[in-house]
Simulated assay, not measured.
Amino acid sequence: MFRLSNNLIGILNFVTFVLSVPIIVTGVWLSRQANSECERFLDKPIIAIGVFLVVVSLAGLIGACCRVSWLLWVYLVVMFLLIVLLFCFTIFAFVITNKGAGEAVSGRGYKEYRLGDYSNWLQKRVNNTKNWNKIKSCLQDSKVCQSLIDDGNNTLVLQFYQEQLTAIQSGCCKPPTECNFTYVTPTNWNIITTTSTNPDCTTWSNDPSTLCFNCQSCKAGLLDNIRSDWKKVSIINIVFLVILVIVYSIGCCAFRNNREDDAWKR
């Protein structure tokens, strides 16, 4: 009779194999349906993850159920490396998202964001011109400011000031409050001469395709959004790490069973 650990590893890897198929199909579908560089951004990583899961799950399934010790050994090595990498990434994510937060503005329902408040590593990523041009293109394609533009003519100034804008909307779709521009609509402001040293005041444009997408505040709003998402991902990673460690432990038991069976046959 198969040992319990071998059966468990076989079942877990069969489930993983089944789940990997729709992941690959999704990646292929994205690559064919994408109309822009932003939409094609995820297709290759998704396909790579799907193929990786297929290979690893087959190694674990065959190694445990067919008692092929070397395949199960490869499976355990890959699992160990995955655990180490995931642990390092989780620590890294916590460290770089530890800094930065929006600043409350008096009389405003939204917060404003400063690039210098975030970690140097994140700042370097968005300050790279090539990186930011791609990110900016994606933000424009996603139409993050479209709701403000659509409702702009009907939004009174006091009503706008109480809006609960997202970090990206606050940073990319309007000028900073310290510029003291006069409100016309959410994305249209009378530009006046200001004593503010904030470079975003001269970068702002009423052109709907430009707005504040070249501003430091837009980069800061994006980083705040990333910071929030990465913190959630880190929590999920911790749960996933616990599951991986349990599966790895079961795999070690299955590998030991294979070695014992091989020794008994000899």
Rank of each mutant, 00 (worst) to 15 (best):
W204F: 15
V239N: 02
S170V: 10
A220E: 03
A254T: 05
N198F: 12
G171P: 04
K232A: 12
T194D: 01
P176G: 11
T210E: 15
V242L: 15
F181V: 09
N198W: 04
S249W: 05
I226G: 01
F240N: 04
T202N: 14
V245R: 04
G171F: 08
T194H: 03
D200P: 13
T166G: 15
C215T: 09
D229I: 12
C215N: 06
I246C: 10
Q164N: 15
C179S: 11
K232C: 03
I238E: 01
C172F: 08
S205W: 01
D207H: 07
I191G: 05
W204T: 03
Q159D: 15
L158S: 12
C172Q: 10
N237E: 05
T197L: 12
A167R: 02
Q216L: 09
W230S: 12
D207E: 09
S217T: 11
N214K: 11
V157P: 00
T182P: 01
A220N: 02
T197A: 05
N198L: 08
T193S: 07
N214W: 01
G171T: 05
C252Y: 06
C172I: 03
T182E: 12
D229Y: 08
Y248Q: 09
I250P: 01
I192P: 03
L156M: 11
F160H: 15
K232D: 11
C212W: 03
S228R: 13
V157Y: 02
Q159A: 11
I243T: 07
L156Y: 09
T155I: 14
L165Y: 10
P186E: 00
S170E: 12
Q216F: 12
S205G: 06
P175G: 06
D207F: 04
C252G: 08
V233N: 01
S228D: 13
I243Q: 00
C218D: 11
N237W: 02
